[in-house]
């Protein structure tokens, strides 16, 4: 199921800059382990879905996977072999803007070894470097 917003105010958005580190969404909240991005970038809806499938194939019916990011940003592109100008391109896909430190996915109900293997498979699909993060009690 490709993710995208149901309703938006504007069809297109400006590119923007990814500045600083994540000050929100950088803790494990729902599960026991999290996959944290250590780089910033755009993660497309297709990539988020690919990550979910990679994790689900390993987990099967065990444990629970939480997706912590959502593609809110429309990314436009202009068709190939088009001359410059004539305005901004059409929305091509949707992406999540990820700052370094953002928790991308979480897993609950599995051992650390299983979570580590699962996230290793999942991290291969991601366009950013990632690390495993454990839940903190304090």
């Amino acid at each position: 199921m490709a993710l995208m917003p149901r309703r938006v105010k504007h069809r297109k958005s400006q590119r923007g800059r990814i500045k600083g580190k994540a000050t929100r969404g950088n803790r494990v909240v729902f599960g026991d382990f999290g996959l944290q991005a250590t780089q910033g970038g755009w993660i497309s809806a297709a990539t988020i879905e690919a990550g979910r499938i990679a994790a689900q194939q390993y987990l099967r019916t065990e444990g629970r996977l939480y997706i912590r990011i959502f593609p809110h940003k429309p990314i436009t592109s202009i068709p190939l072999e088009t001359r410059m100008g004539k305005g901004k391109g059409e929305p091509e896909y949707w992406a999540a803007v990820v700052k370094p430190g953002t928790v991308l996915y979480e897993i609950g109900g599995v051992t650390e070894d299983a979570a580590r293997i699962c996230f290793q498979r999942l991290a291969h699909k991601m366009p950013v470097r990632c690390r495993l993060l454990r839940r903190r009690s304090h």
Partner: peptide
């Protein structure tokens, strides 16, 4: 009970579909 989660990509929205515009 375990929830059967799809491992296949099932496009819920048609290709090129756009979200509803607010206002």
């Amino acid at each position: 009970e375990p929830v059967e989660v799809s491992e296949e990509i099932t496009p819920e929205v048609a290709e090129g579909a756009e979200p509803e515009m607010i206002g």
